[in-house]
Simulated assay, not measured.
Amino acid sequence: MSSTEDDGFAAFVAARGTSLLRVAYLACGDEGEAEDLLQTALERTYQNWDRVRYDDPEPYIRRVIVNTSISRARRRAILRIIPMHTPPELPVRETDVDLRHVLMDTLRALPPRQRAVVVLRYWEDLSETQTAEVLGCSAGTVKSQASKALAKLRLASGGESVKGVIRNVHA
């Protein structure tokens, strides 16, 4: 790769790195693993930079992050070492901070595909079509996975509307 292409990649990472790290963290729920996910995604993107730089490279990186997160979760499931986070039976509702903790714990407990849908749809504010494109599935799958995930989040939050809370959790 030429130094001009290297500079373009470096500028892209500098501009979007924080947002992509947030996506990685929300996809896996662990800060250290999020950094590893992002590093993997950036390595793969760098290897294919000639191809993806002319389009918008961000959806490509998001897809790598989500797919890698799902693959790692499956491997852990096979090895039976998935950390289990259980939401409290009755969430403490004194402050928004408590609700945020409950939602984050519940988000971490969601299956990887449902967690990816919630992160992309509501944190990254992608449309159903964009989310389906990133995940490599149909819009109907995105809708059903979002519905199941939101039902679990709603149950953990004591029945509150969680879409708005989700969007405000990272604020």
Rank of each mutant, 00 (worst) to 15 (best):
Ala15Glu: 15
Thr45Trp: 12
Ser138Gly: 05
Leu155Gly: 00
Gly164Tyr: 05
Arg53Ala: 13
Ser127Met: 05
Ala27Lys: 02
Met104Trp: 00
Ser157Trp: 03
Ile166Gln: 04
Glu31Ala: 11
Asn67Gly: 10
Gln114Ala: 13
Pro83Lys: 07
Arg108Asn: 04
Arg53Pro: 04
Gln145Trp: 13
Ile70Ser: 06
Glu133Met: 04
Arg22Ile: 13
Gly164Met: 08
Glu33Phe: 05
Val142Glu: 01
Val142Trp: 01
Leu90Arg: 12
Lys148Pro: 03
Asp6His: 12
Cys28His: 08
Lys143Glu: 08
Thr141Ser: 06
Leu103Val: 06
Pro91Val: 11
Leu21Ala: 12
Ile70Asp: 09
Asn168Gln: 14
Met1Lys: 09
Ala151Phe: 06
Gly17Gln: 13
Arg108Leu: 00
Ser71Cys: 00
Asp6Leu: 13
Ala116Asp: 03
Thr45Arg: 10
Ser147Gly: 09
Ala14Tyr: 08
Ser3Glu: 15
Thr45Phe: 12
Glu43Met: 10
Val13Ile: 14
Glu35Tyr: 04
Cys28Gln: 10
Ala10Ser: 14
Lys152His: 10
Pro83Phe: 06
Ala41Pro: 03
Gly8Met: 09
Ala156Asp: 02
Asp56Tyr: 07
His101Arg: 05
Val102Lys: 02
Ala156Phe: 04
Thr68Gln: 07
Arg108Ala: 07
Trp49Ala: 10
Ala73Asn: 03
Ile78Arg: 11
Thr68Glu: 14
Glu35Trp: 04
Val117Trp: 00
Ala27Gly: 12
Glu124Asp: 14
Ser161His: 13
Val102Ile: 12
Ile70His: 09
Arg44Ser: 14
Arg62Asp: 09
Gly140Phe: 01
Ala109Gln: 05
Ala146Ile: 06
Leu20Gly: 07
Met104Phe: 02
Ala77Asp: 08
Glu35Val: 07
Leu153Phe: 10
Gly158His: 02
Tyr54Phe: 05
Ala146Met: 05
Gln130Asp: 15
Ala10Tyr: 09
Gly17His: 12
Tyr46Leu: 14
Arg167Met: 13
Pro59Glu: 02
Arg76Lys: 13
Val102Ala: 06
Asn168Glu: 15
Gly159Pro: 05
Lys152Gln: 12
Arg44Ala: 11
Val142Asp: 00
Cys28Met: 08
Ala171Asp: 14
Ala139Ile: 02
Arg53Gln: 14
Glu35Asn: 08
Leu79Asn: 09
Thr131Asn: 06
Ala24Trp: 07
Ser127Glu: 09
Gly8Ala: 12
Asp96Ile: 03
Asp30Glu: 14
Leu120Gly: 05
Ala171Glu: 13
Asp30Gln: 08
Arg22Glu: 15
Gly158Cys: 01
Pro83Thr: 09
Asn168Lys: 15
Tyr122Cys: 07
Ile78Leu: 02
Ser157Val: 00
Gln47His: 14
Ile81Asp: 14
Ser147Thr: 09
Val118His: 07
Arg76Cys: 01
Pro91Gln: 03
Leu21Ser: 10
Leu20Val: 05
Ala149His: 07
Leu135Arg: 07
Ala41Thr: 06
Ala10Leu: 12
Ile82Trp: 01
Tyr60Ala: 04
Pro111Met: 06
Gly17Asp: 12
Cys137Pro: 00
Asp105Glu: 11
Ser71Ile: 00
Tyr122His: 15
Trp49Pro: 11
Ala34Lys: 11
Val169Gln: 01
Asp36Arg: 11
Gly136Asn: 04
Leu90Val: 13
Thr40Trp: 10
Val92Thr: 07
Ile82Asn: 12
Ser127Ala: 08
Ser19Arg: 14
Leu38Asp: 11
